[in-house]
Write a protein that binds this DNA or RNA. Structure first.
Lengths: 165, 165
DNA sequence: GACCATTTAGTTGTGCGCAACTGAATCGTG
DNA sequence: CACGATTCAGTTGCGCACAACTAAATGGTC
């Protein structure tokens, strides 16, 4: 089906590289979107998008944090986080407060409603797990691979970028 | 570091599930964005975004196709493809033509410039490969896993969706 | 204390992704 | 032939992601 169309023994010609290129990166891209689709369905009850859910997970786990710290953990910059957190605030789940010590910093606090949502979110992971059809070991293995990949890609993006920062 | 914070012998409490959940889905999400970042750097010379590059790959491989067929192969709907293809047309890489037999269908044709770009794109896969730090076998393995995951997730999204179509 | 570089959020603009919808062409069935 | 359902592309609206920028606060150095 997706097997090589190349005659046996022939080194992969450029055309095959383009095919392969599509396959690997596309697989990742497609898997990411598929995950997003499942989350969209499961999170609909909570009224959260997947990135919003990620922010809530971090807050539930670590308590109030500055936007900066959220961005570091989720690898998102203020251009993404600022409007996202603002939407969470509009939904009544968080509150933003300028830090007293450092007026540049904005801490994101959970509201009562935001804290209470955690209880309703507890079932989400299990539903996601079952949707993948993978067991814990397989997921762990895949996760390790992906993290390894991300690290390599991030490093490559910096060097490929020429005189990268 | 990311190891379980749970006391030995204790069955993972719900809190740990929320942690794990963040890790697996987040890993995939992060890897996908990291890939996108590398492509952004590498494709800048060609003036393409990653999704635009995917469309060009399909056209280089299979020749002119209706929008519908592009969407099936890339798992994208017209809401995404229509403006994307329009941008490719503005860039002079493709041409859109209503099919004569079926006036509903629009075939996407490569222009001369679009066809010629293929030669310049041939080096892209190798640069991407080297950016991943993975060899062919590892990539193939990862791809198989991801495709398996996508299939499971797509199916789950349909059934989770309640009376899903 | 004055000045400049850095840090931190936020804003703007562009593109992707998807749900929901519109409109035109086609097909099927009576 | 007529009429309703379906198919296909496109549009609208919303949210995410990121580059590039702005604005305010902070820190370091002379």
């Amino acid at each position: 089906m997706t097997a090589s169309p190349t005659a046996p023994g022939t080194p992969a010609p450029d055309a095959d590289w383009l095919r392969l290129d599509r396959q690997i990166c596309f697989s990742l891209h497609a898997a990411s979107r598929a995950f997003n689709g499942v989350y969209r369905v499961i999170l609909k009850d909570l009224g959260l998008t997947y990135p919003q859910y990620l922010v809530m997970l971090v807050l539930w786990e670590q308590g109030d944090l500055p936007v900066k710290a959220l961005g570091e953990q989720l690898r998102l910059d203020s251009g993404t986080l600022s409007p996202l957190v603002k939407r969470l605030e509009t939904a009544g789940l968080v509150r933003r407060e300028r830090s007293a010590e450092d007026e540049r910093s904005v801490r994101v606090h959970l509201t009562e409603e935001g804290s209470q949502m955690r209880a309703r979110a507890l079932e989400v992971p299990r539903r996601i797990m079952s949707a993948t059809g993978f067991d814990l070991a397989e997921i762990g293995e895949l996760r390790a691979r992906l993290d390894q990949l991300t690290t390599a890609l991030d490093a490559a993006a910096r060097t490929e970028a020429g005189a990268g920062r």
